[in-house]
Structures are given as C-alpha cells and as structure tokens.
Amino acid sequence: MLILQSIILGIPQGALYGLMAFGISLIFRTVGVMNFSHGNAGMFSAFIALTVFLLTQNLLLAILCAVIFGILLGFLIEKFLMRPVKHLSHGGMLIITLGILMILEGLAQIIWGVNPFSFNELVSGPPLMFTLGEDGLLILPLNDLLITVISLGITILLAVFLKVTKVGIAIRARSQDEVGSKVVGINTNMIDGLVWGIGISLSALVGVLIAPKTTVTPTMMMNMQLYGFTAGVLGGFTSLYGSILGGIILGILEKIVGIYISPDYQLTIILLIIILMLAFKPSGLFAKKFEGRV
C-alpha cells in the first residue's frame, strides 16, 4: 500500500524532475553545454512570476510571464555569454554557467531578499482519494495531478514540435552536425538561442510549479537542479524522452527512500545514485552505448 502511495506521490514530483532534465538535455544535446545555471534561471523566473502575481493577483498571467521571461533569459545568455566561448573550451563554458548560477542567486538576493515568499497552488481543494481493497486509502492531491498533466502535456507538445515542424527538425539537425546544419542554411546562432530559450523556459515552468511546495527563495531550485541532473543521468543526456522517464523513476525512488529509510538521507542517497550511475553506466538506463558529448 505504502509503496503504491509513494508511486502516486512520486510521479508528479518526478514529472517536474523530468521537465528539468528535458531542458538541460535539450541544451546539452544541441549546443553542447551542460547548463549549471539551469535551476537558478528557473528560480529567477519564479521570482518574476511572484512579482507579477503580487501586482496583478492573476496566477496564470504570472506563470505566463515567468515562462516568457525564461525564453528571454535563455536568448540573452546564449547571445552574450555562451556565443563568445562556443568553440573555445568546455571548461570555459562550464565555468561561465557556474558564474551565471552565482550571479542569478546574488541578484535575487538583492532584489527580493532571502526571506521565503509563499506561492499559490494552481488548484486547491480536497485531494482525490481512492479506496483500495479493505483498508487501503490512496491520496492524490489535485495540484499534483495537474502538475503531472501539465508536465506530460508540455513534453508531448515539445516532442511533436521537434518531430514535425521545420524548426524542430532544424534543432535536431543542429544537434547532430553543426557544419552540416550551417551549409543547408540553418541559422545556427538563432537555433542555439531558441534552444536556450526553450530550455530555460522549462526551468521557469518547473520553478512556478514547485514554488508552492518550496516557497520562493534564492536557493529554491538548488536541489531541483541536482535532481534534474540526476534524472538526466538516469535517462542518459542524449535521449530527451529518457530524461522524462528518468525523472519519474527518480521521483518515485525519492519517495520510497523517504518513507522506508529517512527523509534526511533522501538527497544523499539520490546523489550517490548519480555518482554510481556516472561511474558505471554513464549512458543512462536506456541507451545502449555511451555517445555523450563531453
């Protein structure tokens, strides 16, 4: 019973991890940068949502603003920071994303301070309950259900976008061969900006969806980013859909650890999984061979 409950609670959480990993993977696959500022970019967007919400009391508008801001932020990061070092060094790109991570945290501290703000759930109301057998009772909060639906919906939408639209195919083409995509006339800088925009807007979305649970603070996305990485590692960064699946597995695993062992060790154990996975199967659970970019 308990295990079923952990699964039910784990899926919405895992869907968010998956969304996080999806954005990170998309950027990594296409542009070749592991974005360590991913979480904080989402955090900053969540603060934008908070501000808009406090001004307008309109939650949907707030979320929309956060997502749009995320797209913008992604474009800016690509244009001004990543483009100059694109072909120079992986180390350089890595350190720049770490720099962005720190800057965003510092900026948020200056603008909004370090005290947490509460953020509304999308829907409130009594959770759904199912009775199972004699005395089994499963609880599914409405908001969690909605989060799952949104996450999966967005994933499917993006999958379709990447599969059938011309720009979507161009993104995939760019991720496979930069020179090849240039010579067919793809504006690779534009594609890179777009990918950064999409990736970060996903983090922004995760930020506003998780905000009711974490509250809005400058460090709210720190763990989320780690989980995103873990989900990505589980799914194998080179497979976008693996990311989602990896996220959901991770979400369930987390709940199981929390219930059966101790919430104190949740993060540590999850992180050990990352390290072990990276050490023994860096290609992820689903890929056959390791073909990741370094």
Binding site: M34, F36, F229, V233, L271
Partner: peptide, 15 residues
C-alpha cells in the same frame, strides 16, 4: 570527462 565529471563532483559535494 568535462561536464559529466562536473556533475559527479557537484553531486558528491552536496551529498
């Protein structure tokens, strides 16, 4: 190498 190592060390640090 590179990014993967960065993730592993970051996870290690936080763990």
């Amino acid at each position: 190498k590179g990014f993967y190592l960065a993730i592993a060390t970051m996870a290690f640090g936080v763990a």
